[in-house]
Design a protein around this nucleic acid. Sequence first.
DNA 1: GTGATTGCAAATCTTTTGCACTAAA
DNA 2: TTTAGTGCAAAAGATTTGCAATCAC
Lengths: 137, 137
Amino acid sequence: MARPYTQVLERLRAAGLRPTRQRLALARLLFDGGDRHVTAEILHGEALDAAVRVSLATVYNTLHQFTAAGLLREIVVDSQRSYFDTNTSDHHHFFFESSGRLDDIPNERIVLARLPDPPKGTRVKRVDVVVRLDDTG
Amino acid sequence: MARPYTQVLERLRAAGLRPTRQRLALARLLFDGGDRHVTAEILHGEALDAAVRVSLATVYNTLHQFTAAGLLREIVVDSQRSYFDTNTSDHHHFFFESSGRLDDIPNERIVLARLPDPPKGTRVKRVDVVVRLDDTG
DNA sequence: GTGATTGCAAATCTTTTGCACTAAA
DNA sequence: TTTAGTGCAAAAGATTTGCAATCAC
């Protein structure tokens, strides 16, 4: 079932984003139904499939606004394309190189011992672990 | 001082790459003098500065051929640009987001305990840890 | 109304490609 | 020779931008 309309709407308002038709529609595609990893192209395609008129430029803008607002997290695994993750909590990723698919690895499944201190004048913003996978045989 | 010409030449031959003028020049820029992280644009600029005539397309080709031959490793930290690392041994990276700079973290400075098993039908190709840094204050 | 948001098309940036030319073996 | 490698300019793909039209408040 779709998350109640008002919940998405409130979420946008809380983030200081005007709940426009486009943002509401994209937010529902993104946040209804579990954790997702999308590219701008994929989300735009889903919007069109759902008969939501939205330009690709707006999809890019929206993804970045949502990311700035903390609703999404950008994942860098492929230098050709940006992925956005609806799971903004601490966790890591499997990256299936053959298909371009991305899967979450829950935080507790990886233990990082002995992390180096950040260089002077800097602070650790995030530690990303990407487990790159090949197909067997 | 520059590594002896023949050493670079032999390294290319050993990798099955014809030691052309362009490849030799780029190899010397890359492999003389310690570990480096370059983008195609940067390496092309260095070549021009060193009065080596080489096209950007050839720089891209060469970086990929060197990577395929195991002389370089590609690092994904920025979805807009590809970085290549002359250090091909196992290690990780600091990424200074404000400057786009990349620094090696020796392998033993990070201990990965309890890695998840790869999903059925896949094999772990590599585990990349990127420590993303912000400037303080 | 008024300022934020959107769409569109054009621009930008990185990277790849096609193909005639050049150079290594 | 013969085949791999190169340069150039054009193409491709992802993303951003400028600006007039539209929408939320």
